[in-house]
């Protein structure tokens, strides 16, 4: 039986993990490789690395970091941040990324999704959608959530599927960082509206929140950052709990 996935997300800046990290027994808690190894040890199903480095020049170091990560860990790795072209993707895949994720660049130029899919296969294209509930319903935001777009969330999700995306990473800006639980309504609606896997993101605060998103939506995976980084939830405990709640996890 196909299992629901638990995915820690690491934000990378200038080659280091940002957002405070409070892991026990790490030699260097800011080193993404050390943190990645700790998550593999805990039973993470995949890892997502988002490079939030400001400048293109400094971002070139990302491929080197991906190489180090891929050499050390044996679960799938998705890498994103500042990907604008098939060439950018080629560098990361060659370095050892299993999938890549794009967000603003897909909104700016939707054909990029098809270009990447036709070269590397749909399975490696994860389109990230940042969404927020507005007076006009759920809308798509870009540039790290700073800029609203004309797109409504569900039609945009269908569009990226049609263009060849293999997976959608849906982040609710209404709940992101609040630890009040995933946005069940939009996650359910998007998951129902597309036939590709959806990763729920934004709002995880407790183990019950993971149960809720898996029981109330058809999402394939749930992603979180700070609750894992700060050791508030150990992935081993989370999976034990989900198994007891009859949710299929690895």
């Amino acid at each position: 039986m196909l299992k629901r996935r638990i995915i820690p997300c690491l934000d990378i800046k200038d080659g280091r993990t940002v957002k405070g990290v409070n892991f026990l027994n790490l030699v260097d808690a800011g080193d993404p490789v050390e943190l990645a190894k700790a998550y593999v040890e805990q039973g993470a199903d995949e890892l997502v690395f988002l490079d939030i480095t400001a400048t293109v020049e400094k971002r070139k170091a990302l491929a080197g970091l991906v190489e180090r990560i891929a050499a050390e860990i044996n679960i799938p790795v998705t890498v994103g941040g500042g990907i604008n072209s098939v060439e950018d993707v080629a560098v990361l895949i060659k370095a050892g990324a299993d999938k890549i994720t794009i967000n603003s660049s897909a909104v700016k130029r939707p054909e990029l999704i098809s270009e990447i899919a036709s070269q590397f296969g749909s399975q490696c294209v994860v389109v990230a959608i940042d969404t927020k509930l507005t007076d006009d319903g759920w809308k798509v935001f870009v540039n790290g959530g700073r800029m609203i777009t004309p797109f409504k969330t569900v039609p945009w999700a269908r569009k990226v599927e049609e263009l060849g995306a293999g997976e959608i990473m849906l982040t609710s800006m209404n709940t992101d960082g609040t630890k009040s639980g995933f946005s069940l309504d939009i996650t359910a609606e998007v998951s129902r509206s597309v036939n590709i896997p959806v990763i729920a993101s934004g709002g995880a605060g407790t183990m019950q929140h993971f149960r809720a998103v898996f029981n109330n939506t058809s999402c394939s995976a749930a992603l979180a950052a700070s609750i894992f980084h700060f050791g508030e939830i150990d992935i081993r405990d989370l999976k034990k709990y989900l198994k007891e709640e009859n949710i299929a996890v690895r």
Partner: peptide
């Protein structure tokens, strides 16, 4: 066939 999510993605037995 499109009766469930495609790609088949994740851990299975």
């Amino acid at each position: 066939p499109p009766v469930d999510k495609i790609p088949h993605m994740g851990w299975n037995n």
